[in-house]
């Protein structure tokens, strides 16, 4: 039972093997905390407080320490996110080349604000710092993929391609 008495977060035996493998890669197994948190996010979609406590147990770390790491990194989701995540770059180059219009278009099409998730759970929309792809500005990241030189039509095509 965890402190909050909520949904149980637990890895399968196979996933635990992966955790042990990751922990074995470093002289101090604590170094595997980031990849294991990524694994949590891949498996459960986001990192809940229960998951933080669970991971703390896997590493013999205090929950407070895991919470520090999770809240520091912006790419960890602490709330459930959509099946797809669209991150629009809002830094200088993209901004000058129309990032705001891209974002406005996305907000309208999806009917959500930045940080929100569509009611069907399909897409979460984010606005983020530089993704290091100024050569294709304005750009966004959809899941693991970069899309650049955006226009309204291109954004529509990207959205239509998402399940």
């Amino acid at each position: 039972m965890n402190a909050r008495g909520a949904v149980k977060v637990e890895f399968t035996p196979e996933q635990l093997v992966e955790v042990r493998r990751l922990q074995g890669l470093y002289p101090d197994r604590r170094a595997a905390l980031l990849p294991v948190l990524q694994l949590v996010q891949d498996v459960f979609g986001h990192i809940s407080l229960e998951a933080e406590e669970y991971v703390a147990g896997l590493f013999d770390l205090s929950p407070a320490h895991v919470h520090e790491v999770v809240t520091f990194y912006t790419l960890f989701f602490r709330e459930p996110k959509g099946r797809h995540v669209i991150s629009v770059c809002h830094n200088l180059t993209c901004h000058l080349l129309g990032a705001q219009q891209v974002l406005t278009h996305l907000k309208k099409r999806l009917g959500v604000e930045v940080g929100g998730t569509t009611p069907d759970g399909r897409v979460t929309l984010l606005s983020v710092e530089c993704l290091c792809a100024c050569e294709i500005a304005p750009m966004l990241q959809v899941d693991d993929r970069y899309e650049g030189n955006l226009s309204g039509e291109k954004v529509d095509r990207i959205l239509d391609g998402l399940a």
């Binding site: 407080l49 933080e52 406590e53 929950p63 407070a64 919470h67 520090e68 809240t71 520091f72």
Partner: peptide
């Protein structure tokens, strides 16, 4: 809390200007 008492209750939460100390999971 960590080194003298070995209780590990306090950590930091958040980032940048929003950082503050947190107890357990805040």
């Amino acid at each position: 809390c960590d080194e003298i008492q070995g209780n590990d209750v306090i950590g930091r939460t958040g980032k940048g200007y929003l950082t503050r100390i947190a107890f357990d999971l805040d």
